[in-house]
């Protein structure tokens, strides 16, 4: 259950008024995901003073600049490495990493899989728009085969990454994927992610009509959303489908929900072990 506050209430409480309007283009999905995240925080009653937003570079990475929280807007792909230092030295802080698909899976790929391997206590909100929006629509490691970008004008010829799948394989505690029009599922997933220990990821397929859609005969957000409806398959249904039918589809839903100990707890145990081995403690 959640109490639906008006968007104005959420805006006034959590956004930096002097940084508005945002840079997001018409039809962009980042604003919606930002709203889901703020509603999740509000609904959980989390303390605004104890959350740090981190990000790298890209459209979605500009979000920490718009919100009334401590924020670290860092270098391209490195957000999770910065987050590691913050979280470990101040475990009271909850870390939200707002990242894009290029930021996460290309330049930040190594930091991403290692943050998951360590089970760093962080919630990643991932905006996947299949493109590099800020630099003008180049292909990304998520661009589906055959789709166009300015740097693959004849259609992408490489295979795309399934970021959620990668996170599951690397050992994340919670992984879900939705599209921006899965409003309730999205908010609920973020709430769950924020409540858990260890690495949690909520990926959103998010429309970018200006840089991505325009080059792929989907000039508006509604066209992109209809396309998402066509290509996405809910997890329960996907389980019953033969692999050849799933070809070119993107599965949405909750992929994993487990409780492995997070990095903070592991490190605290490690310090205790060190003290035991020194003979200082029993």
């Amino acid at each position: 259950m959640m109490y639906l506050k008006s968007a104005y209430e959420i805006r006034d409480k959590y956004l930096r008024k002097d940084m508005l309007p945002t840079i997001f283009c018409p039809g962009c999905g980042i604003g919606s995901v930002l709203q889901f995240t703020l509603r999740a925080i509000d609904d959980l009653g989390l303390n605004q003073d104890e959350i740090v937003w981190v990000s790298g570079i890209g459209c979605s990475s500009r979000v920490p600049g718009f919100v009334n929280f401590d924020g670290l807007h860092t270098t391209h792909g490195r957000a999770l490495a910065f987050a590691t230092g913050i979280k470990l030295t101040n475990p009271n802080l909850k870390i939200i990493a707002f990242m894009g698909d290029g930021d996460t899976a290309a330049i930040g790929g190594n930091h991403f899989i290692h943050a998951i391997r360590r089970n760093l206590d962080v919630t990643v909100i991932l905006i996947n728009n299949f493109t590099y929006g800020m630099t003008g629509g180049q292909v990304a490691p998520t661009t589906l085969k055959g789709l166009r970008g300015t740097t693959a004008p004849y259609g992408q010829f490489e295979n795309p990454f399934d970021i959620a799948g990668l996170a599951v394989a690397a050992g994340a505690n919670y992984v879900a994927r939705w599209t921006v029009f899965n409003y309730l599922q999205g908010i609920n997933s973020i709430k769950k992610a924020l409540s858990k220990e260890g690495f949690t990821l909520v990926e959103f397929l998010s429309p970018c009509p200006v840089s991505f859609g325009r080059r792929n005969r989907m000039k508006t957000a509604p066209e992109l959303i209809r396309w998402y409806q066509k290509i996405t398959v809910p997890l329960a249904k996907a389980k019953k489908m033969p692999p050849e039918e799933l070809e070119g589809k993107i599965v949405i839903g909750e992929f994993v929900d487990r409780d492995r100990p997070g990095l903070v707890r592991e490190y605290q145990e490690y310090i205790k072990r060190a003290k035991r081995m020194m003979g200082w403690e029993q």
Binding site: L72, T74, T75, A81, A83, G85, I86, T89
Partner: peptide
């Protein structure tokens, strides 16, 4: 009681340091 972390590369190392510096 301090923290030692072996990061995935040198880029991550200095990044983690900067994060920790901002907590004091």
């Amino acid at each position: 009681g301090g923290y030692y972390l072996q990061m995935e590369d040198e880029i991550g190392s200095i990044a983690a340091m900067i994060g920790a510096s901002w907590t004091g």
